[in-house]
Amino acid sequence: MTLLAFDWLYLVEKLVLIAVIISASLLIAMYATYFERKVAAWMQDRIGPDRAGPFGILQPLADGGKLFFKEEIIPNAANKWLFILGPCMAMLTAMMTSAVIPWGSKIDLGGREIALQIADVNIGMLYIFGVVSFGVYGIMIGGWSSNNKFSLMAALRGASQVISYELAMGLSLIALLMLTGSLSLKTIVEQQMSHGNLWNIAYQPLGFFIFFVCALAECNRAPFDLPEAESELNMGYHQEYSSMKLGFYLFAEYINMFISSAIMATLFFGGYDVPFLDESTLNPNIAALIGIAALLAKTFFFIFVFMWIRWTLPRFRYDQLMDIGWKKLIPLALVNMVITAVVVLLRQG
């Protein structure tokens, strides 16, 4: 067969990797909903879900099952196809970012080296940025096609919020890019792992802070959850949704939270690097497994911080939100960028 002459094993390897990463993200997002409720309970001195299984560990399954069996309602005045497309877009864009994250170094399977990254493209950081800018469509399409004034208002809020905070996020990433000189996430992690280099957080503390605040806003998490401000908008852009379509919207938020935590760990906290451990002395397979565990540990920490903030801070007002984005974060990010540029230039010359 000369048709499609290429390494079929490579295709199989990548498909398996994609399947594993997608199911892992779904599983983690599922349990993030459980931990969100547990964290909220601890902070409010309650017990939280504890009925389904030991410690309520089966609660996410019960929630998912409940959503599946709810009646599916599509409003008469809604635009049917776009109404279905909205939650699909939300899930798709939430999942797509995971393609460029390096989850570990390499695994050696019978002489075949498998990189634990779906695509090591040399535009990795821009790819993330591109997918983030698509996150708006899920909200906008869903909000508009519901044909409900509250939904539309919430969708417009969400879209303008995401667009505003994208700018500051991009500027904080440019400063990081000046230091690393590469857009590939794999290269960025390897630079942080190499001897004598500290994690990027040591060089870019302000950049990380800006990125973190913007990530909160991009995920529509409290204190930036204005598209879902119940007290002003009834419920938000997914008001008309029911059953699993609503579930997709709610679920996409948790996947986004997981992926953006993984990106923060990768860009600023060394990715799969374990501090004070020289991975090259270990068996590569063991080193890869330790690396995955390290990345997941860092990611879970950030997910916890996301929840911690949600149950601590009250919601911003809409004008405050725009004020912080345009008048505080963007100038701060610009200053950070200029300082980084000057330091990089002085160190070169």
Partner: peptide, 24 residues
């Protein structure tokens, strides 16, 4: 690749969102 992703970020990600805004 750079051209590809910038095309997506600028046109599909930013300009089309503004189009949608106006039309909605």
């Amino acid at each position: 690749q750079f051209l590809a992703i910038v095309n997506l970020i600028v046109y599909a990600g930013a300009i089309m969102v503004l189009f949608l805004f106006v039309i909605m």
